[in-house]
């Protein structure tokens, strides 16, 4: 499948006559990447499905307002991450504490995840899901998506220094958690 450049896609979305084609190409190009980013954060496929839909509805609504100087994927990650955070807040309203909300993610993971039975991957995910929300988002964007700190800073509106600290703490905590569970 041909991969079109962001410039070409944006040129198409600019004109009413070709907007539909441009949006189709945009979704085709980024759907998988955005899905996995969302799925890693919200864990269950059902939640990921809802967040995906909301994310692309926002893309349809605000594509006109996209600043041409910025990177398209940064903008998409920003929308998707904000939609995930919205979902966490909704869940937080349901669960009385942060720990409970975190526990609910772990619960989702234990119910829906772990398909391949790889113990080390399971332990890694469990440790990751125990992280505070912000550290978990930073860790995901840096570790899995390999985004530069400068781009993560644009996605989360946080300075690079604080992101590096968050990533470092997240990495240490995961390692500690995994080592502890190995001993047990």
């Amino acid at each position: 499948m041909t991969e079109y450049t962001d410039e070409y896609i944006l040129k198409l979305t600019d004109k009413p006559g070709t907007r539909e084609r441009g949006l189709t190409l945009l979704i085709d190009k980024y759907k998988e990447r955005i899905y996995w980013h969302i799925r890693r954060l919200v864990v269950s496929h059902e939640d990921a499905q809802d967040v995906m839909q909301e994310t692309f509805i926002n893309v349809f609504r605000f594509i006109d307002k996209f600043e041409k100087g910025s990177k398209l994927y940064t903008w998409l990650y920003r929308i998707a991450t904000n939609e995930c955070i919205k979902l966490f807040r909704k869940k937080r309203d349901i669960y009385t504490s942060l720990e409970e909300a975190g526990g609910s993610l772990l619960g989702s993971y234990q119910t829906f995840g772990s398909d391949d039975g790889d113990k080390i991957v399971e332990r890694f995910q469990e440790a990751l899901l125990k992280l505070p929300e912000k550290q978990r988002i930073v860790f995901n964007l840096r570790y899995y998506d390999e985004l530069p700190y400068e781009e993560i800073s644009k996605i989360l509106d946080t300075n690079v220094g604080s992101l590096k600290t968050s990533y470092h703490y997240a990495y240490q905590k995961i390692k500690e958690e995994m080592l502890n569970s190995e001993i047990l």
């Binding site: 979704i27 759907k31 496929h45 995840g113 991957v121 390692k175």
Partner: peptide, 27 residues
């Protein structure tokens, strides 16, 4: 090594056809 050994593999699966049908559904 303990983190590296986990790599970037994920223990999740996507239901068949979800991503394939996503563009059409969204459009």
């Amino acid at each position: 090594d303990i983190i590296e050994s986990a790599g970037k593999r994920l223990p999740y699966k996507v239901p068949d056809g979800y991503l394939e049908d996503f563009t059409g559904n969204m459009m």
